[in-house]
Structure formats: C-alpha cells, structure tokens
C-alpha cells in the first residue's frame, strides 16, 4: 500500500517559479510575524511555519481552486499558499478589522470562503473528522472535488484521527490526509509519542493508501501529492501522506528553537536541508534561475510583506459592536414559511 517517491526534475518554468515564490513568501512573511510578535503587535499563541514551506507549496500546487483545504493552528503558510492575501493574514495577526476573519480568530483561525479555506483549528486532531465530513459532502453531491486535511504528526495519536480515517476508508471518501511530520509535537519527539514512527503505515488499519515523501524536496512533495489527489478525485480512494519535514523555530513563539527538547546540532543538521535553499540550488543547476532573478523575487516578496505589515498596522481595530456579531446567523424567514 505504501509508495515512496524521489524527486524527478521536470522543467516547467511557470510551476518552478510559483513553487519558489510560494515558499519564499511564507519564509519572509513568518520572519516578519516573529518580529511583530516580539514588538507586541501580535498577541496570543503564534505558531510559525519556517522550515515547512515545501509542504504547503508542494501539496497545494496539486489542487484545483474548487478543492477544499483544512488545517491546524499552524496555518499562516497554508493560508498564504491557498491565496489569502498577505495583507489579510497579517491584519488578522494584528487583530484588526481587515483581517481575513475580522479580528475574531487571530493566528490559529484563518478562514476564507472565497478560496475554500476551511480553517485553522485549534484543538489537536479535532479538524480531521471535519475533513472526513467535507469528503462525505463531496461524495453525497456526486462531485469530483478533493478535501486536503493537514495535521501535525502528534495528531495521529488522537482518537479523532482514528475515527475520522476509519470512516473515510469505510466509505471511500475523496480526502487526502497530510501528516506534516516535523518530528516534535510541541516538545515531545515522535518516537516518544507514537508506537510506530513510520506514521504512514497507519493507513493499513483503514484500508487506505499510505505514502511518505521528503518534505524538504518541493518537487517530490508535489509529485506524490498529485498522485494522491488524482486517486481521491478519480477513484475516491483516500490517502494518508506522511511528509517528513522540520520546523526551524520553536513550537510557538514561547519556546526556543533548540536547547530544551532538541539539540542545537540536530537543528543545524536539519537546516542544511532547508527546502528553499535546496530548490534554489536545483533551479540554478538546471539553468532555470540566476542569482539576479532570485534576488529580484526576494526583494519583491520582502516588499509585499512590508506592505502587509503597513496595511495591518493602519487597519482599525474591530468596532466594539462586532463583539456580538456572528454568534448565530439569522435563518431566512422564507425557510420557516412552510412547504
């Protein structure tokens, strides 16, 4: 049931450019988010995506606009790649009215109906059944969309994960479950939390396909994900895809990148496989990218993130009257008007 792919370089200039853009945008965005957090412009919990950029960029490049994406509280990167504007994400982090959920959700709860981005969810594992439900709805309507559900590797130990994947396998629902295995659930290493560490092998228990891929190799991620998405779309076969990656920062802004639960040496070793560095090197080796082109892209993205910061800084706080808005939605009176 398991498949494993190595990167097979193909020359597609537009795609290469998009993947590089999406990864670098996330990196530059998250660096500034960390800065804003330190300055007190962002409050609460703030979980950064630095190091994992190839996962979101590679997997989402295999999706159609009408597919669905749902993820965890480490959601800035997924939101940006899915197409929520950096301004709207940064304004949300700043708790401002122009944020993508108007200051109601913050770092952990990005949503955007326009791009079928079903959230940013804060309880570990709880969004996995929701993804199964989206898959159920797709099948119910006879559509050919796919739902992609991202999760950290600690999610596989929750009951919600088991219950949700069992039903997806039982009913053949078009969902791709992507484990972003960054090796640490907060500060607990995967081998201290899961009885098996090849997490994709859990797919066997649900009669779905298991696959693993190197999460620092964006082309390999894309290729493996494309197969999984096709399988869901055309055969309604769910996949549990384990993407092995690394976060170069702490679990949230409240813990150091190394020193407590992982060593500096381990962190430095992983940084040698920085997904952006690897992809840039690959593109240069095949003659698809010059230093000047890279620099130009980087300058543009730094400017875009600065623009997002300025926009967020100037956006007003949400009006106080919005405090009581959106607790319940008004049911249209014609729905209650009889048959």
């Amino acid at each position: 049931m398991a498949t494993k792919k190595k990167s097979t370089p193909k020359s597609d200039a537009a795609l290469d450019r998009k993947l590089l853009h999406d990864m670098l945008l996330q990196r530059r965005f998250e660096e500034r988010a960390a800065e804003a957090y330190a300055l007190g412009k962002i409050g609460g919990f703030c979980h950064l995506y630095i190091g994992q950029e190839a996962v979101s960029a590679g997997t989402q490049s295999a999706l159609r606009p009408d597919d669905y994406v749902i993820t965890t509280y480490r959601d800035h990167g997924q939101a940006l790649v899915r197409g929520i504007a950096p301004r709207a994400v940064m304004a949300e982090l700043f708790g401002r009215v122009d944020g993508c959920v108007h200051g109601k959700g913050g770092s952990m709860h990005m949503f955007d109906r326009n791009v079928n981005f079903l959230g940013g969810h804060g309880i570990v594992g709880a969004h996995v059944p929701l993804a199964t439900g989206v898959g159920f709805a797709i099948k119910y309507r006879g559509g050919d969309q796919v739902c992609v559900c991202y999760m950290g590797e600690s999610v596989v130990n929750t009951g919600a994960f088991h219950e949700a994947l069992n039903m997806a396998g039982l009913w053949k629902l078009p969902v791709v479950y992507v484990i972003e295995n960054n090796r640490y659930g907060m500060g607990t290493a995967v081998e201290r939390a899961s009885a098996i560490t090849d997490l994709f092998k859990r797919a066997e228990a649900y009669n779905i396909v298991g696959a693993e891929v190197d999460g620092q190799d964006v082309l390999a991620v894309r290729e493996t994900m494309t197969e999984a998405v096709d399988r869901a779309r055309t055969e309604q076969v769910p996949t549990l895809l384990e993407v092995r990656t690394f976060r170069y920062v702490g679990h949230s802004m409240s813990d150091a990148a190394s020193g407590t639960y992982r060593s500096k040496a381990e962190l430095e070793e992983s940084e040698k496989r920085d997904p952006i560095v690897l992809f840039r090197r690959h593109l240069q080796e095949i003659g698809a990218l010059t230093d000047a082109e890279y620099q130009k892209l980087d300058d543009e993205l730094r400017a875009a993130v600065q623009d997002a910061w300025d926009f967020a800084d100037q956006s007003p706080e949400p009006p106080l009257e919005t405090l009581f808005e959106d607790v319940l939605v008004e049911t249209p009176s014609d729905a209650m008007a009889g048959v």
């Binding site: 079903l118 059944p129 929701l130 199964t132 439900g133 989206v134 159920f136 709805a137 919600a160």
Partner: peptide, 17 residues
C-alpha cells in the same frame, strides 16, 4: 464513533449539507 461522526457532520454542514 460519536466524536468522529459528530465532526463529520460539522464538516459536511460547513460546505452546504
């Protein structure tokens, strides 16, 4: 699988069922 099918229902409701 109460947790599972309750959550499944929420996901299905979010997208229109």
């Amino acid at each position: 699988t109460e947790l599972g099918f309750a959550g499944l229902g929420v996901g299905a409701a979010m997208v229109g069922l």
